[in-house]
Structure formats: structure tokens, C-alpha cells
Amino acid sequence: MSGEDRTSAGLEGALEATAASLGLTIPDACLPGVVANTQLLHGYVELICGMPLPDTCLPAYEYQP
């Protein structure tokens, strides 16, 4: 699903479900801000996941110059 397809209302429901699975309750006052930031992050996720990488490219948890 692209960022454009995600309506705020749909995203709110998805976020609340994910939050509940982690034991987090998003206060009503925070929901618009969390939705806005999630939409921003989804844009970044689409950018990075749009770049295929070879299976041998491993995550960079450590840096050994």
C-alpha cells in the first residue's frame, strides 16, 4: 500500500491496533501527531524499500572501518 493510499482514518486504526499489540495506548491528543509522523516515515520507508539490495548485503549494526 502506498503512502497516498493510506487515509488518515485508516492509518489511525492500523496504528492503534499495532500500538495495542505492544501494550501502548495512544492518547487522543497525540493521535494526529503520531499519524502525521507515521505518514512521513512511510514516505521514507517507500524510498528505502524501493532500492533492491543483494542478499549478501548485511545490516550495518557495527562499524569496523
Binding site: I48, C49, L53, C57, P59, Y63
Partner: peptide, 26 residues
Amino acid sequence: RDRLMAGALLPSMPVVHAQRLRSWFR
């Protein structure tokens, strides 16, 4: 708070992919 909450709710796949992209960029 709102940024941290949004981050905590990210799925794992893009985070791992971001770290792989980091290896590539290095």
C-alpha cells in the same frame, strides 16, 4: 513524543533494510 511513538510502531522489515542500505552506502 509523537515522533518517538511513530518510530516505536514501525515494522521491523524497513528498519533492517535501512541498516542494509547503510552497509551499501559505507
